[in-house]
Amino acid sequence: MRDRYFPYALLVPAFVIVLATTIYPLAYSFITSFREWDLTRQRRPSDFVGFGNYQHAITEAAFQSSLWVTIIFVFTSVLLTLVLAILLSLLLRRQGPLHTFTRIILILPFAMSPALIGVSYRFMFNPEFGVIAVGLGSIFPTLKGIPWLANPNLAMAILVLTDVWHWTPYMTFMCLGGLASIPRETEEAAKIDGASSFRVMWEIVLPQMKGVILITAILKTIFALKMFDQVVTLTGGGPGISTETLAYFVFKVGFKWFDMGYASALAWVLTLIMIFISFWYVRILLNENRAIIK
C-alpha cells in the first residue's frame, strides 16, 4: 500500500516548487493582463478592462517594432549559430591535440555571464579605445572611427554577434553528441568508393544529422527569444528603440513605466509564442526518446 504512493511522494517537493514558482505567477499575470494597473498612480489594480491591454499592444508602434526586432534577431542569430555549430562540430570530430584543446576552451563562452559578455563587447567596440573597433579601423581605413553602437544596423549586428559567441559552443557540443551516434560504416564505404569528402559530408553525414539539427534549431530559437541581458548591458535597446526586443519591451513597460496591466499582457504574448515553440520541441524530444528507450 505504501509502495503505491511512494512514486508520487517523491514528486511532491519538486512539484510544489514548480507550481509555486512558475504556474502560480503565470496565472497571476494572466489575470493582471486583463486589468488596468499603473503602479505610479494606483496602489491596487482596477476593474477588468477586457482585452484592452492586448488591443493596446496590437496598435502600438513600439510593440510592433519590438516584434520586428525580435524576429530579425532570432532569425539571424539562430541561422548563424546553427551553421557555425555544424561546421565546428564536423571540424572537431577528428582527433588531435589542437582539437582537444579547442573542445576544452569551447565551454568558456558558454560559462561566461551574458551580462558580462555584453559589457565586454561594448568595451571592445568603443570607437576610441575599443580593441576591435580600433583594430578594424587600422586594417580597413574606411572603418576608422565608426561609432559602431550608435548605428542601428551595426548595433543589431553586434548584439547578434554576442549571442552567437555565447551559444555556438553549446550548440557545437550538441551537434558533436549527435555526430557520435552516427554509424561510420557508410561514410567509410563511400570514401573507399572514391567519393570526395565534401560529397560524403553533404550526402551522407548531414542527412543523418537532421534530427540533431532540428532539436538544436528549436532550442536555439527558444534561447534567442529569451535573450535579455546583453540588450541591457550592450545597447540599452538603442540607438533609439532599434534593438529593443520583445523581452526588453516587457521589461521597459513593467519596470520603467510601471504599467503592470499592459506589461502582463505583453508578457503573455511572449509566453504564447514560447509555449507554441516549446510544445513543438517537447513533442520531438519525446518521440526521439521513445525510439531510444523502446
Partner: peptide, 10 residues
C-alpha cells in the same frame, strides 16, 4: 522555456 521576464513581473 518560459522567459524570465514573464516570471519576474508577478
Amino acid at each position: 522555456f518560459i522567459p524570465a521576464v514573464v516570471i519576474v513581473l508577478p
